[in-house]
Amino acid sequence: MAPDGPVAPGGGVPAGPQPPQDWVFPPTGGYPVGAGPYGGQPWYPGAPVAYPGQPVHGWHPPAYGLDPADPLVTPPGAGVNGWFNRCVGAVRRGWRLLLPILLLTQVLPAAVVSVLSLVVDPTARWDQAMAEEPTTLPDTFVTDLGVMLSVVLGSALVFGLVQSLGWAAGTWVVTRQAAGESVSMGAALSHGARRALGLWGWTLLMSVIIGLGVCFCVIPGIYFAFALSMAGPVYLFERQHPIGRSFRMFHDRLGLLLGRVALVAAAVIIGGGAAGMVEGIGTLPFGTTPLDSPGTAVGVLVVTLLGAVLALPTHLAQLVGLVVTYAEQRAHEGPVDSARLAGELG
């Protein structure tokens, strides 16, 4: 049976009371436009919508379920300032919990992988052997390389599960705090543990896709990294089709998502580069074989841990930036708020 009210493109019927029959729908959306109090556009005779602290816009009024003051969801038209303000707000609300969570699940695993890399690093032995026989590879070259790759990649895979737990726990904290709900370290880690395995599996698949893209002249790898940037949040909130959904979000709002993710990537690259530089400069005085004596070994461990801690703000920026960006993408698709997103996390 045909619906009584007008039907939006794609067959959807607007929720709530039906508008007058002479209303029309925009060619690219599912929301009615026409006479009403939320205008500012030719089809809206009423006053424009003014989001607090933002320019006047005539799209997605509060009547359609979007709160312009929502602490997590950036309404369409609020721009980069609206997105950035919500990122800052999430950090201010949650840093007391987010920092220890990220310290335990991101910083410490990264430090352990770095230390293991130093332990199995055979380059000093290779340099010594090639100084004696410059025209031939060391006899243990293949064996040493296999051991190093096995240890580094194996530890990265194992600790990737811990890092997935941290991303899930941090996302839960950011979302529940925005919805005004109570949070605690134990509850956050418990939620993270329930979602860690699934997120870890999807992360491995995304890493393979991005790695294959990098093998093809790097640029495809960069494209895949941006196109898959929403896959983690999609899995945590929706738990289905994260790769396909992320690609659709990226292509549906290419400029918006590309700009937001580029800002997050810039923060991660700059912060991570600075931390890596400090670690590299700090380890220079200990020579090429720092683990040969207890004194230099302790010094290298301290510098490595310091470098990992200095990278902590980059983990925080990446987590908050991607969650807020995902919430903004959802706002472009339909009515959503922090409470609904918190409910979706479970």
Rank of each mutant, 00 (worst) to 15 (best):
L189N: 05
Q21Y: 05
E333G: 14
V88N: 06
P42W: 04
L189S: 07
G307T: 11
G295L: 12
G244T: 09
P6H: 02
P17A: 10
H332K: 11
A196H: 02
L306T: 15
L199E: 02
S338R: 08
L204P: 01
L228N: 01
L165W: 01
G29L: 02
A327R: 08
P233A: 07
G39N: 06
H60I: 11
L145I: 11
R330E: 15
A110T: 13
P62W: 08
F237C: 07
V324S: 11
V88D: 03
L254T: 15
V158K: 02
M230V: 11
V336G: 09
E333H: 12
A225E: 02
A188T: 09
L103K: 07
T296G: 01
S114H: 04
V268S: 02
E333P: 07
V298N: 06
L319V: 11
T105A: 06
G221F: 02
A131C: 01
G276S: 14
Q329Y: 09
L205M: 08
Y326A: 03
Q106P: 01
P285C: 08
F84T: 12
I269N: 03
P76E: 11
L291P: 07
P75M: 05
T28A: 13
P14L: 02
G65D: 05
D67L: 09
A311G: 13
